[in-house]
Design a binder for these strands. Structure first.
Length: 269
DNA sequence: ATGGCTTGCACCGCAAGA
């Protein structure tokens, strides 16, 4: 690990697809107060930048950077106001992708490089959006290879829209090789993790039946018919610093929830 | 069975999500 990293400074990092920050702001501020994360990556804010709730989050004790888009997409990073340096080297677009969709936001926070991703959904295997998803992931891999060279203390997190393996699917026999589980998608994710990134949740929990998303329909949450598609990948250099990883199902139980729930990792760096 | 909910936008139904 780099000499710039101070040991025994815990950093709790979270990712949450809020499915409209306008609707979910009360849930977010409640969860920030309850969970006390240091860094939060948000996806599907669905807000143009002029409407980002900067003041409300400042009142909750967090600074924010954001790359917003009306109606669709939109990502943001929050950092607890006490973290020195704020957001450094902010990136919203990568050279490999000319994309008006707001799905990427990187910043260095407290000596950790954080890359927040809202990966393309893909709609259905064979759809043109699916081809775009695979191309997007290949180009993202190129970008992340460079990030890893520049920043050994790398965390790549967000809504990956890929269930890494069958343990991450409530009914793999039925879901089969459909969208979010198809071999090419899983291979594209594997090509990214093979750069030297670890699915932090799997460092602590080998079992299935742990999900981060449940469909709004069919009482899917009550029946735990979900997928684990929200991931926090940590670089080799951070692996020994990881002390815990969780999926916090609580906000999914609240009234009018996001269909995703927050995932976290605790780093001692 | 491609829908079932939920969101935003723009109307009073639609696309999109996963």
């Amino acid at each position: 690990m780099g000499a710039s990293i101070a040991y025994n400074a815990p950093m709790k990092i979270a990712s949450w697809n809020v499915n409209s920050l306008k609707v979910r702001l009360p849930h977010l501020t409640q969860w920030l107060a309850d969970a006390q994360p240091d860094v939060v990556a948000l996806q599907e804010t669905k807000l143009e930048d002029a409407k980002f709730p900067v003041d409300e989050l400042a009142a909750a004790g967090y600074r924010a950077v954001f790359s917003g888009q009306k109606t669709y997409n939109g990502v943001a990073l929050l950092a607890r106001a006490g973290i020195d340096g704020g957001f450094e080297d902010v990136v919203t677009d990568i050279p490999q992708l000319q994309d008006p969709q707001r799905r990427i936001l990187a910043a260095t926070i407290g000596g950790v490089r954080v890359v927040d991703l809202y990966v393309v959904n893909g709609k259905a295997v064979g759809d043109e959006k699916y081809a775009y998803k695979l191309d997007w992931l290949a180009k993202m891999r190129e970008f992340l290879a460079g990030e890893l060279e520049r920043h050994p203390n790398l965390v790549v997190l967000g809504d990956f829209n890929i269930a890494p393996d069958d343990r991450d699917v409530y009914d793999p026999a039925t879901w089969g090789e459909d969208i979010l589980c198809s071999p090419p998608e899983r291979d594209a994710l594997k090509r990214i993790t093979e750069l030297g990134l670890h699915d932090s949740f799997r460092l602590f929990e080998p079992a299935g039946e742990h999900f981060s998303w449940w469909d709004y329909r069919q009482a899917a949450f009550r029946r735990n018919m979900g997928l684990r598609i929200d991931l926090i990948l940590i670089a080799d250099a951070l692996k020994s610093a990881a002390k815990a990883a969780t999926i916090d199902r609580t906000p999914r139980t609240w009234e009018r929830p996001s269909d995703h729930t927050p995932v976290t990792v605790d780093l001692d760096i």
